[in-house]
Design a protein around this nucleic acid. Structure first.
Lengths: 122, 122
DNA sequence: TATCTTTGCTTACCAAAAGTTAGTTAATAA
DNA sequence: TTATTAACTAACTTTTGGTAAGCAAAGATA
């Protein structure tokens, strides 16, 4: 890092860190990606039932933006009632290990972090 | 993954993915961590000047929560005007590589992602 | 024939969270 | 008298996400 990269910190538009976090810092994106990685192909309602706390609205917003970014693929069958399947794209696949490493770190450190948090307020 | 881990998706409190994203999905945390990794020790105003777009309020909120989680260390000198120094803790250090790998991925794929986004709307 | 069911959404409305801006503080040195 | 530093506060705006309702079209049910 240093030198060149530092310039980015000031500039929101071109900052690589902002680019990551603006994209994956939302409430559901990473969850959907990891779930699709785990399950392969899923329909809308399967996702909805598995991630119990997501609303229909937010699920469809999340899926749409993941599709727009080319991270997942959407396949719609011309049937009624409708059938739509979602799966990871190659690009999405390539992202998974990085998310997983972050999640692994969190799993390992969360107990200590929670302790720190608790003692901080006192 | 599979089996056991899947249960977490439904349950916000214990979901490891939510734990990560609730913590680092905010606008400034990762930026501050990477900057401190790069610079070692920084005072409040140095951070503020380097990350030009952050407001004083959000910078202090961010620093406080990073400190509460034990990811950074704060050293205050009993002077006026005040002098406060921030640096990464060991725990914070251990997180850095994971963030960097995510940022590296983003740098590599952002051009394509932006193309996808642009063509999606049409 | 009428209405209910199914799926994958969309829309309008609302509350809460996050972020912005401007103003305040306190001791000292210039 | 003014600038300095690292905050904090209040008032305000923006963003995010949730709720509840509705829709479309075909097939099943009564």
């Amino acid at each position: 890092m240093s030198e060149k990269s530092l310039n980015f910190f000031g500039d929101a538009e071109n900052c690589p860190v902002r680019n990551v976090m603006d994209r994956f810092g939302d409430k559901w994106s990473t969850l959907v990606l990891l779930l699709l990685e785990d399950q392969g192909v899923m329909r809308f309602n399967e996702l909805h039932k598995t991630i119990k706390s997501v609303s229909q609205k937010m699920l469809s917003v999340t899926l749409k933006s993941l599709e727009a970014d080319g991270l997942i693929l959407r396949k719609q069958y011309p049937e009624i009632p409708p059938r739509v399947e979602y799966r990871l794209s190659e690009r999405g696949q390539s992202l998974i290990p990085h998310i997983q490493s972050l999640v692994a770190w969190a799993n390992q450190h969360m107990p200590e972090i929670k302790k720190s948090r608790a003692s901080y307020s006192s």
